[in-house]
Simulated scan of single mutants.
Amino acid sequence: MFFDRCFLLVKFSTLDDSHGIFYADGNNDYVEYKKGKEKINDVDKLQLAAQAICLEKMYQIHIEESYLYYFSTNNRILVSLTD
């Protein structure tokens, strides 16, 4: 997925649209699946934000929050994308 205004290229390993990524009311979110465990830094959250920017621009939607799911810990973390 490529957004040319920011020269941003992202690749989705899996895009989970079970929460309704194309809802017209703006209630859109998605899940980014990770094999490892949570990182101490914000690198996964930054990747999630970059993916959200591309999705918003390509599909003319708004994403306020998303999730990081870590398989090794079976933990799902809510990430706010409004700041």
Rank of each mutant, 00 (worst) to 15 (best):
G20A: 00
V79Y: 08
D17M: 10
H62S: 09
Y70L: 02
F71P: 00
I21H: 07
G36A: 12
F3Q: 01
N41T: 06
S13T: 08
D42H: 14
K39E: 03
F3N: 02
L81I: 04
L48E: 02
D25A: 14
L78N: 14
M1S: 13
L81Y: 11
M58E: 02
F2Q: 00
L15R: 07
K39A: 13
I61Y: 11
C6A: 14
F22M: 03
I53G: 10
L81P: 05
L46R: 13
Y23R: 14
Y30L: 02
V43H: 11
Q47E: 03
Y23I: 02
L68P: 05
L46M: 13
F7I: 01
D44G: 13
Y59T: 02
A52P: 05
C6F: 12
E38M: 15
D29K: 14
I63A: 04
V43R: 10
I21M: 06
V31Q: 05
G20F: 00
T73P: 05
K57P: 01
N28G: 10
H62V: 08
L8P: 01
L78P: 10
N27W: 10
D4F: 15
D83Y: 15
D25N: 15
L68C: 07
F71D: 06
F2H: 04
F71W: 12
V31S: 07
N27D: 04
L15P: 05
N75A: 13
Y69K: 05
F2A: 03
L68T: 05
H62N: 07
A49K: 12
S72Q: 09
G20Y: 01
A50C: 14
F2Y: 09
V10Y: 08
K39R: 12
R76Y: 05
L15W: 11
S72H: 12
D29N: 15
G20N: 01
D16C: 12
S13K: 11
M58T: 13
L46I: 14
D29G: 15
T73V: 06
